[in-house]
């Protein structure tokens, strides 16, 4: 896929930085702002009652923007949050050093999870006002829940005693070693700390436990990917006859697994195919075989299992 833009745009790259952030006027430690990951972590245990967060943004633009070719140049930061339907455009002002600075304000009532911030440059091009001539390659994420400014990249795993009084919702599974909850916001893999020996095995740092540990981890991960895939399939919306990629973890799961489910289809085509199967109620049979194959690959099960088997044999021989 390649985009065609019917008018001239800026050649160089524009970069957006978060200079500082304040919660109700109190500056946030810079350790909560990662320019490498482009994440601002707004959550602080001692202050979850803040009202507004101010993010001071600076954009750097290439020299060519100063040339006469560009008229009515304006720079802005676009802050969006899908869940609250917020799109806030903050104009940035040009500074003496030709960078652009502005302050975006997040009101807590208007946000719930993650806001994305993108930088854009507009100009009047061929008599059309306000045309986008550049946008930042990467977006910043302002996260209301994060304590450290890193992007969440793994599925959450939690140890719980499935039979304990606090975990009523896990009682149905109290004999199981693990359970997978594919909820809307964030999926969770629950590991049963009441399952004898499981925690000891998985947390063990001993070399001799490595092979079993990896084999068990592979089993859990395989179950997890298969369960999440099936949940994700049912969240695909069809708009104007075209299946739409779901958002959040569901998109990630589909994007990771579809190339293995349908290796000869582009991700978009694979999504269409999946929808078609779902519509025809063909979720069983061949599709499940493919899903299991993709889950096995995600969980790298072939490798961990072969090592496990080889280890078993070696132990046998030594006896």
């Amino acid at each position: 896929m390649k985009t065609l833009i019917p008018y001239p745009t800026l050649d160089g790259e524009i970069v957006l930085e978060v200079k500082e952030a304040r919660l109700d006027g109190k500056p946030l430690s810079l350790t909560l702002i990662s320019s490498m990951e482009q994440v601002v972590a707004l959550h602080q245990v001692e202050r979850n009652d803040w009202e507004r967060a101010r993010i001071v943004l600076r954009m750097r633009t290439p020299q060519e923007l100063m040339s006469d070719e560009w008229v009515d140049v304006a720079c802005a930061a676009v802050l969006t949050e899908k869940k609250t339907n917020v799109r806030l455009v903050t104009p940035l002002k040009r500074q003496s050093d030709n960078s652009w600075i502005g302050v975006a304000e997040l009101h807590r009532d208007w946000h719930v999870g993650q806001a994305e911030v993108e930088g854009i440059v507009t100009a009047t091009v061929a008599d059309v006002q306000g045309r986008v001539i550049a946008r930042t390659r990467r977006r910043w994420t302002v996260d209301l829940h994060l304590r450290t400014p890193t992007r969440k990249r793994t599925i959450r795993t939690v140890w719980k005693d499935f039979s304990s009084e606090e975990n009523v919702y896990l009682h149905p599974y109290k004999g199981d070693p693990w359970a997978i909850e594919a909820a809307d916001d964030e999926p969770v893999v629950y590991l049963n700390s009441g399952f004898e020996g499981l925690q000891f095995l998985l947390d063990s740092a001993s070399r001799s436990d490595r092979a079993v540990q990896n084999a068990v981890a592979g089993q859990i991960a395989g179950d997890c990917w298969a369960a999440l895939f099936n949940t994700a399939v049912y969240s695909i919306d069809v708009e104007d006859g075209e299946p739409q990629w779901p958002v959040g973890w569901k998109e990630s799961v589909l994007r990771r697994m579809l190339p293995d489910v349908y290796p000869d289809r582009s991700p978009d085509d694979a999504l269409v195919e999946l929808c078609e199967r779902r519509r025809q109620g063909e979720s069983g049979g061949e599709l499940q075989t493919r899903v299991l194959h993709a889950a096995t690959k995600q969980a790298r099960m072939s490798r961990s299992l072969s090592v496990f088997i080889r280890t078993l044999r070696t132990v046998e021989e030594e006896k």
Binding site: V89, T122, G130
Partner: peptide
């Protein structure tokens, strides 16, 4: 996809 209406018509906060 190419026009920033927010720049053409700036809203009050």
């Amino acid at each position: 996809s190419t026009l920033m209406y927010e720049i053409i018509a700036c809203d009050e906060v």
